[in-house]
Structures are given as C-alpha cells and as structure tokens.
Amino acid sequence: MKQVKDIFIIDDDPMQSMMLQDYLSKYSTFTIHVYNSGEEALKHLDINPQIIFLDYNFDKAGADAMDGVEILKELKQHIPLTEVVMFSGQDKIEVAVNTMKYGAFDYIVKSESAFHRSENVIFNIIKRMKLQGEATMYKKLTYSLGIALLLVIIIAIWLYKTGNISDNPGWI
C-alpha cells in the first residue's frame, strides 16, 4: 500500500461529511466514499480504502447504531493496514486516548481547523507509507545480500574441500 487512492468518510452528520468531501475534492487523485453509518461502510470494505475518517459519535444514526469505537475495532480487524482518523466534537483527552488505544492514527476535533488538519494527516500518512515501503525494500535487500554472501561462503568451502582451490594463490 504505497499510495492513497480511496478514502472513506463515515459520519452521520451530512454537513460535516459534505464539507470534508468538498475540502478534499481538490485532490483529484483521491476517490472519496461517504457513508452515514459504520454498518453501511462495513459493507464496502472490498474497496480496501487506505484512509478512513470516522466520527466518534453516531447519535443521529439511531440508538442501535454502532458507535465510533465499535466501528474502529471492526475496521482494524478486517482491514488492519488502513489508517483510521477519528473525528469528534469532544476535545476530551480521554476520548482521544481511547481511540488511539484501538489503533486510530490520529484524532481530530470538529472545529474550523478540522479540515486543514485532515489534509495534514493525509500527508503524514502518505509520508509514513513511503517510509514503510522503503524500510521493507531495505529489509528485503539486506536479506538477499545475506543469502548471496552465505552462498558464496558455501561454494568457497565446497571448492576448498574438493581441492578445486588451494591455500596457495597462483601468484606466490
């Protein structure tokens, strides 16, 4: 997962969803999918979004609706590589800590600065994805070099044992 293509917005407040969708629509590379409940979003996980903006409270969606943390847990179980950013009207630190505990990438308070912060969070996630991609590549490279070195040593020992090479290099 090296680039952001699909973004989910899960919020029961249509104005908040529309404002965020409009704000992010300046980036034509993103396809934004809006859902007004967690239940609805969970039906579309085959899209495999890279980022999800998820509301913390789903009071408007009805008493039986899953709350933000329940949805977060489901999302992390089904699509663990997807980064989930929580949105809430509450600026309580306990709420933020609670969401982070269940694997949220960040927590944004719904305010005038929320949209700009969302944009910054997307760039932070992209940056992290690139770094993770590079780290994986270097890990593979190191592993391959290790295997190659081991093979050279094994061949050298085998040649030595079979007498095909000697201790005495030809130029001495």
Binding site: M15, D59, G89, K110, S111
Partner: peptide, 16 residues
Amino acid sequence: DQLRAAAHSLKPQITY
C-alpha cells in the same frame, strides 16, 4: 442523555 447527544451533534454546525 439524548439531549446531550442532540446538542453535541448540532455543535459543529453552530461553529461553522
């Protein structure tokens, strides 16, 4: 509890 929830969901729109 429902009053709190309704007030909470209107809050961001009041701000905007």
